[in-house]
């Protein structure tokens, strides 16, 4: 479970106390709408025989493509929803922080989970393969004790080509951890200019 109204209210108050504004970002529905409109259109065109392929080999290819496309059109919006939708805070022009609250309803008997957690991540700060920026990023991460990987599957296995700062907090230390990631962005913003020169 990702969100509860009381947790959202709590985060909102803490962010407000720091002088920023909390915004709710929901962009997964756009990808859902576009991808699924195309799916419906394709299926209608096939149903009314507007698309009709006579060549058996091409027909098999088209069917295969359609099945893959239908699968993607459902999974991408779901993945998007879990990876990028959430609460955002615009800290400066071109810099924002994404908040993903997680609340575990079911208690595990084996593991002692932290019940309420808030994953905090920054926007993409640089391309991973830029050597100088990667070094600066690593330095900031080390000095600020920031976790290197975020919870999403793409980032967990190092598949993302971009660098972004990540932090984890509970409601109790939320403000301090939020300040830590914003200070990391501030440091990045200042130091980045010296690299560009």
């Amino acid at each position: 479970m990702r969100n509860t109204p009381s947790l959202k209210e709590y985060i909102n108050r803490e962010i407000d106390n720091l002088g920023f504004k909390l915004q709710e970002k929901r962009r997964s529905w756009i990808s859902f709408l576009i991808l699924n409109s195309i799916s419906v259109l394709l299926l209608l065109l096939i149903e009314f025989k507007v698309i009709y392929i006579n060549i058996p080999l091409l027909n098999t290819f088209f069917r295969g493509f359609l099945i893959i496309y239908l699968f993607i059109s459902i999974t991408i919006p779901i993945l998007w929803r879990f990876s990028y939708d959430g609460l955002t805070v615009e800290v400066k022009k071109n810099y924002h922080v994404l908040l993903n609250p997680h609340y575990r309803i079911r208690k595990s008997k084996i593991k002692d989970y932290q019940l309420i957690g808030i994953y905090i991540s920054s926007n993409r700060v640089a391309f991973k393969f830029n050597k100088h920026k990667n070094k600066l990023f690593t330095d900031i991460v080390r000095t600020r004790w920031l976790p290197r990987k975020r919870k999403s599957i793409i980032s967990k296995y190092g598949l993302s080509p971009f660098l972004r700062f990540n932090e984890f907090s509970t409601p109790l230390n939320f403000q301090k951890q939020f300040l830590n990631i914003v200070l990391a962005l501030q440091e990045w913003d200042k130091e980045k200019k010296s690299i560009s020169r």
Binding site: F20, V91, Q175, K176, L179, V182, L183, D189
Partner: peptide, 15 residues
Amino acid sequence: PQEDKESIRNWSDKK
């Protein structure tokens, strides 16, 4: 935290 807050507020307000 108050010093940190002031620092990021100054940075955030700077264009």
